[in-house]
Nucleic acid binder design. Structure first.
Lengths: 154, 154
DNA sequence: CGGTATCCTGCGCGATACTG
DNA sequence: CAGTATCGCGCAGGATACCG
């Protein structure tokens, strides 16, 4: 993946298979390049859903198996109903999660990872575990940083 | 000065592993378990720095090699000076990045990944690439979702 | 160049209440 | 149980100006 700087003006998305100046074979599909570094690229919002404050936690929670709304709510400590619903909508829209309704009373709804969702979770949970495993070092670094900063003022 | 994180509150952070009321060797250090799912865990803010809107992009950008402030600003399309500074501070504090000042005129400052930072980036860029590679599918899913939703109203 | 200080706004998100 | 609707506060974060 490369840079693609549209410094000047408006939002440029993952660039369209822009027709070259000449007569190259223009199949015009498939070979679009997406780049998170570009301001207008559609991958930006999707990355935010995946890595955002709640989206990531919801996804990783679903790695343990399908879950119902309130189960998720309990598992992701601190999330509000509103934000959970919002996160699930975004993830469903992006094709990371499927919502499965079992007609019954009382209502029974389960959320499940798609194949793509599983791929994302696999990588995401690797990251989470790596960070968790190194938190002791992080805490130490923070303390050093704060002390240095405090010492700088006096 | 920015205050950044209003992380305070109580709630158990990383709780110790089981630590019964017994007389087990109580070193009370080192073997703490961190859990992102817990509301007060210190790993939450750190994960947000790593995966947040800008932090992740800054980290991945630094994977290409050390960079200076304005180079980063150009590479991470759309970021403001303020947010870049803020992101760099957080990452430096967490021990993911080091700030290296070369005394000179004009000033020369470089940012570099630590070893821990490199480990994080490795996993993070794997995620980014996976998502970018699947964006076509995401776009299709979004379109299906929107159409289904539009059809539901009438 | 490499930042910080300040002001201002939108919307993120939590709290609460209601529906099927 | 599984959500939607509404309100309102606060902070994320963009624009602008200024300093070493």
């Amino acid at each position: 993946m490369d840079a693609m700087n549209t410094e000047s003006t408006e939002t440029n998305a993952g660039r369209s298979p822009a027709a070259g100046p000449d007569g190259a074979p223009d199949d015009g599909l498939e070979d679009v390049v997406f780049d998170v570094f570009a301001r207008g690229c559609p991958s930006r919002p999707t990355m935010e859903h995946v890595t955002g404050r709640w989206g990531g936690l919801v996804l990783v929670a679903l790695a343990d198996g399908d879950m119902r709304f309130n189960a998720l709510r309990r598992r992701v400590d601190g999330i509000s109903e509103k934000m959970l619903a919002q996160a699930l909508h975004a993830l469903e829209r992006d094709g990371l999660v499927v919502r499965e309704v079992k007609q019954a009373i009382p209502p029974n709804v389960e959320y499940r990872l798609t194949e793509f969702g599983s791929g994302v979770v696999e990588r995401l949970s690797g990251l989470v575990e790596f960070v968790e495993a190194n938190m002791a070092g992080v805490l130490a670094a923070q303390q050093r940083y704060d002390e240095a900063k405090a010492a700088a003022e006096a």
